[in-house]
Simulated scan of single mutants.
Amino acid sequence: METKIRIALQKKGRLNDDSMKLLKEAGIKFNVGSGKLVASSPNFPIEVLFLRDDDIPQTVADKVADIGIVGENEMLEKGFDLNISKRLGFSRCRLSLAIPKADEYKGLDYFEGKKVATSYPVILKKYFAEQKINADIHEITGSVEIAPGIGLADGICDIVSSGSTLVANRLKEVDVVMESEALLVAAPELSAEKQALLDEIIFRINSVKAANSNKYILMNVPNDKVNDILEILPGMKSPTVLPLADDKWSSVHSVIQEKKFWEIIGQLRNKGAEGILVIPIEKMIL
């Protein structure tokens, strides 16, 4: 019988969208129908469970699923012993403290003796303890941001992405408790077969991530400027230099990081490179 690995994913929302996109880019497809909570892959030995994001840590910890993609905030709040296999870099957000917009804020002492509503009491309690703040923490599930407006709390601690929800409820962000991103987590002590499947998934994800953060470039360079150009180009190992029909020119190929793209392109042009082509990389095997 073929060994399969089971992954737990958020059933809907931004984390689901980003997770499914990543797995698709990694060549893993799922037979997903409307409303299905379990799906299999026709081209990889994997099965997916679609769950609420706050149920994922326990599902993996109990080994109902072998691995999962979950927000770092949810993993820390639940406190289960899970292995972080890969930081995925998407679904970034922050867990922040916020207070009524009209209130004056001079520091964390504002929260001393105050009521704070949150869906993350474990994280917040630890944070306040570290900061030596004695606050009254009220756990609320859903619509935390309305708590100050209805007199339930003096402030809140909640997930913030754009901050538009805070503005809509006349709140202002005053302190960041933690930064969060999506994590690929695994249950402890996977079997050798399932660990091999997880390693293959991570290998594919790394290839996708490397491709997304790099660009393939090729350009025409006068032969007497090739060495100057090679000093600029980082390359994976060494740029490729090919002769052109015009024996005074060469074609130079390389890979550059997207974050350095415009800086490097400017240097290449100044050194005499012409006809620069920039090509997206679909996959990059390191």
Score class of each variant (00 low, 15 high):
residue 141 T to W: 00
residue 181 E to H: 09
residue 108 L to I: 12
residue 113 G to Y: 08
residue 110 Y to M: 09
residue 271 K to M: 03
residue 146 I to N: 04
residue 87 R to C: 13
residue 207 S to G: 12
residue 129 A to E: 12
residue 181 E to D: 11
residue 276 I to G: 00
residue 71 G to H: 14
residue 68 G to M: 01
residue 204 R to G: 04
residue 262 W to F: 14
residue 81 D to P: 11
residue 15 L to K: 09
residue 285 I to E: 15
residue 106 K to L: 11
residue 68 G to P: 02
residue 17 D to T: 15
residue 178 M to W: 04
residue 171 L to R: 07
residue 148 P to S: 04
residue 189 E to L: 10
residue 10 Q to I: 11
residue 82 L to N: 03
residue 102 A to K: 15
residue 108 L to T: 09
residue 87 R to F: 13
residue 4 K to Y: 13
residue 242 L to C: 03
residue 113 G to E: 08
residue 280 P to S: 03
residue 117 A to M: 10
residue 132 K to N: 12
residue 80 F to P: 02
residue 107 G to W: 02
residue 139 E to V: 01
residue 48 V to L: 00
residue 35 G to C: 07
residue 38 V to F: 02
residue 68 G to C: 01
residue 258 E to H: 14
residue 77 E to K: 10
residue 11 K to C: 12
residue 10 Q to N: 15
residue 22 L to H: 04
residue 75 M to H: 13
residue 52 R to S: 13
residue 67 I to C: 05
residue 29 K to D: 15
residue 29 K to Y: 10
residue 49 L to N: 07
residue 194 K to M: 01
residue 67 I to G: 05
residue 13 G to V: 03
residue 147 A to S: 13
residue 92 R to S: 08
residue 21 K to N: 11
residue 147 A to G: 08
residue 157 C to E: 05
residue 248 K to H: 09
residue 39 A to G: 07
residue 189 E to M: 09
residue 151 G to L: 04
residue 163 G to T: 08
residue 175 D to V: 04
residue 29 K to A: 14
residue 245 A to W: 07
residue 149 G to M: 08
residue 194 K to E: 01
residue 61 A to H: 10
residue 193 E to H: 02
residue 272 G to E: 01
residue 182 A to E: 08
residue 23 L to R: 13
residue 94 R to G: 15
residue 157 C to L: 05
residue 169 N to A: 06
residue 245 A to Q: 11
residue 109 D to N: 15
residue 107 G to Q: 00
residue 211 A to Y: 06
residue 54 D to C: 04
residue 127 Y to S: 08
residue 25 E to Y: 09
residue 14 R to Y: 15
residue 131 Q to N: 13
residue 115 K to C: 08
residue 269 R to C: 10
residue 97 L to P: 02
residue 262 W to E: 14
residue 22 L to C: 08
residue 187 A to C: 01
residue 213 S to N: 14
residue 119 S to T: 06
residue 144 V to W: 00
residue 130 E to S: 11
residue 61 A to N: 10
residue 147 A to M: 13
residue 253 H to Q: 11
residue 155 G to Q: 05
residue 105 Y to Q: 06
residue 27 G to V: 13
residue 206 N to G: 04
residue 57 P to L: 04
residue 226 V to W: 01
residue 201 I to S: 01
residue 87 R to W: 13
residue 250 S to C: 05
residue 263 E to M: 11
residue 265 I to D: 02
residue 69 I to M: 14
residue 245 A to F: 10
residue 72 E to L: 15
residue 267 Q to T: 10
residue 201 I to P: 02
residue 182 A to I: 12
residue 55 D to M: 14
residue 45 P to D: 00
residue 142 G to M: 05
residue 27 G to P: 05
residue 43 N to K: 02
residue 274 E to S: 13
residue 3 T to S: 08
residue 104 E to L: 14
residue 201 I to F: 00
residue 117 A to F: 09
residue 236 M to D: 11
residue 39 A to H: 05
residue 78 K to R: 11
residue 177 V to A: 07
residue 19 S to K: 01
residue 95 L to M: 07
residue 50 F to T: 02
residue 252 V to L: 07
residue 155 G to T: 00
residue 81 D to S: 11
residue 146 I to P: 03
residue 69 I to W: 10
residue 157 C to S: 12
residue 10 Q to S: 15
residue 59 T to K: 05
residue 135 A to T: 00
residue 49 L to C: 05
residue 286 L to W: 10
residue 34 S to R: 15
residue 67 I to H: 06
residue 9 L to C: 03
residue 286 L to V: 14
residue 78 K to D: 02
residue 43 N to W: 01
residue 158 D to H: 09
residue 40 S to H: 11
residue 114 K to L: 08
residue 229 I to H: 00
